[in-house]
Nucleic acid binder design. Structure first.
Length: 607
RNA sequence: GGUUCCGUAGCUCAGUUGGAUAGAGCAACAGCCUUCUAAGCUGUGGGUCCCGCGUUCGAGUCGCGGCGGAAUCACCA
């Protein structure tokens, strides 16, 4: 065992360095420095050293050149701090070299950790609701929903990993005028078609009638316009529009026939959604239905009206005036008394707070709804709900195709089920071509194809900064080389393969035997990268970005693959070095596995 | 028009609280499998970080002004 000073906290070398530098400035220049002036960063790869102190901010104390200041502080640190084995100064940068001994001891502790998430735990865990998916029950899920679901689910795992109590919720938009559209079309043109009779997945069947409604509605509008009626008027007075308005009224009045129809068609859709969710590997702890919460919303609106927070228009509609908040007038109840989107969201939020007393309620919803959530928060605050500060709109960017936006009218919507199917097929084709799985059973193979195909899809979407709009290129998405999910899975499978062979040779990775080894620079590079895992997870949780973890896993895989290529592990004659490399491989595989797990991506043992 | 977000290599994307010579992948070209999985590794070429001004010892990063793009401002959700 090596003996290092107890004060060297293995978790945060930077913190120790900071205090040492503070001490140095005090003794050398007789000055007190504040923390923000001590800037420590990792040394860039093309320079010698491990940590770098930027000396520019300290010049005001040293009253000397950057070079001399760096030199003086460097000498002091090497003298007083055994973990620092040397230093060099380039321009205003003091590059500190940490001794190999320190790195090895540090790595030994890391290797003994079980989850590698020990350092991510927050001191004050919160109750956090994550709402994601929020489908409409009138059409199947598409590519946009996939991004939503993957982000929401990953966010859940990341926040949970940091110690928060996270509740996955889904709000199903199962009521409203748009739902009536597919119902009406089915009633008129369906001839009693069911998922069973047609063999169609329920959500797709309902979606078919929604599209049919839009088509017929369009025809009516155009006909009216030919008769010289203006477009807005035509849209309002088209017979189909009148009919769905009536239907919505009947629905809100609880009309039996309409209600039964609604229940039946929704049950078809839910069966379809469940299948897709299962394939995506996402689930929910609590599902809310707008049909339950819109009434609460209505009550809230009427109460607020009495309190003069809202106002009633001449036609009976109820509005909020948010111009003082820099927003506009917002309709909350239609003149016929039916609810709108905002009405139910008010109800849902209040309902949820009463149920969970959450610290945060994160809405994973596209950035096209930024305005909606601004209004929602402003409204709730105005109504006196203090917890509204805890509402967070996790606003992610749109998914576009290389040709531009997906448009239902042009039939460019990428269907979730189709896409998943395609990914799995491609994974199968590529795998079979490489022919590495010939000794596997059909079921085992299928499972591996699924992991690879879904891994590729999930990684492709999650590696992009969630806030940014992204382009989904179908050709690129099924590429398994380079910065892709399968690349990371492959790295993992490779390590697993090494361990299978090691077992046959009767070799074990022994974490307790690391200290006596002499390590190479490549090993230390890897240790440095492995060390960054927990801080990567922490910052992913802070800024709500699975992409940070995705890119970290990629970087780690690249680094490991270089190592794997350049050095032999099991063939190494020096037992201590062989063991060191084995332990390092083991930790790498554990961290890759955990990192990808946080993204909701499964890792195959072989591929 | 108002508000919000975005603009980095041919394409898709990284780029920590402002730090050193801006990085990957894809695509193109040239190499590396009798040795732990070549879904890998190495190399070459590729940049006015949209433009301008400002703050700073230092700006892709911060501020202001342009230009370009997206979203939104519905009795749709």
């Amino acid at each position: 065992m090596l003996s290092l000073q107890a004060e060297i906290c293995y978790k945060k070398m930077e913190i120790v360095l900071k205090s040492k530098i503070k001490e140095a400035v005090k003794i050398l220049y007789n000055s007190e420095v504040t923390d923000d002036l001590i800037q420590i960063q990792e040394t860039r790869k093309d320079f010698k050293g491990d940590f770098t102190l930027v000396v520019f901010p300290l010049l005001r104390f040293s009253k000397n050149t950057p070079e001399n200041t760096g030199e003086t502080i460097g000498n002091y640190l090497v003298d007083k701090f055994p973990a620092i084995s040397g230093f060099n100064v380039i321009k205003g940068f003091l590059n500190l070299e940490i001794s190999d001994t320190w790195w090895v001891e540090y790595f030994e502790k890391m290797a003994s950790e079980k989850s590698h998430l020990e350092n991510c735990q927050v001191s004050e865990p919160e109750t956090i609701l994550v709402e994601y998916s929020s489908p409409n029950t009138n059409k199947p899920l598409h590519l946009g929903h996939i991004r939503n679901n993957l982000l929401g689910y990953s966010l859940y795992r990341i926040l949970s990993a940091c110690g928060h109590k996270v509740v996955k919720t889904n709000i199903v938009n199962d009521r409203g005028i748009h739902i009536c559209k597919s119902m009406l079309a089915w009633q008129k043109f369906g001839n009693g078609e069911t998922p069973k009779s047609s063999g169609m997945k329920g959500d797709h069947l309902v979606g078919k009638y929604y599209v049919l409604f839009e088509k017929e509605y369009r025809v009516q509008i155009e006909k009216l316009m030919l008769e010289g009626i203006e477009e807005t008027e035509a849209k309002n007075s088209a017979p189909l529009m009148r009919e769905i308005r009536e239907m919505l009224l009947k629905w809100e009045a609880g009309d039996n026939e309409i209600f039964d129809l609604w229940k039946m068609m929704n049950s078809w859709v839910y069966a379809g959604f469940d299948e897709t969710y299962k394939k995506l590997g996402v689930d929910f702890d609590k599902i809310y239905y707008e049909s339950d919460t819109y009434k609460i919303g209505k009550d809230i609106v009427l109460t607020a009206l009495k309190e003069n927070i809202l106002y009633r228009n001449d036609d009976g509609s109820i509005w909020a005036d948010l111009t003082q908040d820099g927003l506009d007038q917002k309709l909350l109840l239609r003149s016929d008394g039916t609810a709108v989107y905002m009405t139910q969201d008010l109800g849902t939020a209040v309902n949820r707070f009463n149920e969970y007393k959450f610290d945060k309620n994160i809405y994973v919803v596209g950035n096209e709804q930024n305005y909606h959530f601004q209004v929602l928060k402003a409204l709730l605050k105005r109504m006196g709900y203090k917890w509204a500060d805890g509402l967070i709109h996790f606003s992610y960017g749109m998914v576009e195709l290389p040709e531009g936006r997906m448009k239902s009218r042009e039939g460019t919507i990428v269907d979730a089920d189709d896409l998943i199917k395609e990914m799995l097929e491609t994974a199968m084709e590529v795998s079979l071509e490489l022919g590495k799985l010939s000794d596997f059973s059909e079921d085992e193979k299928k499972d591996i194809f699924r992991k690879i195909g879904m891994g590729a899809l999930k990684y492709y979407i999650l590696k992009v900064d969630p806030r940014k709009n992204m382009t989904f290129n179908p050709v690129e998405s099924i590429d398994f080389n380079g910065n892709t999910g399968p690349f990371i899975q492959y790295t993992y499978a490779r390590i697993k393969s090494v361990f299978r062979k090691a077992e046959l040779m009767g070799i074990n990775a022994d974490e307790s035997m690391l200290s006596e080894t002499k390590v190479g620079t490549k090993e230390i590079e890897l240790i440095k990268l492995l060390r960054k895992f927990s801080e990567t997870v922490s910052s992913a949780a802070t800024v709500y970005s699975p992409a940070i973890i995705a890119n970290y896993c990629y970087e780690l895989s690249r680094e490991y693959n270089q190592f794997y290529h350049d050095y032999t592990i099991l063939g190494e004659g020096d037992v201590a070095i062989r063991n060191f490399r084995l332990v390092m491989s083991k930790v790498t595989s554990e961290i890759l596995n955990k990192g990808m797990w946080l993204l909701g991506i499964e890792m195959p043992e072989r591929m």
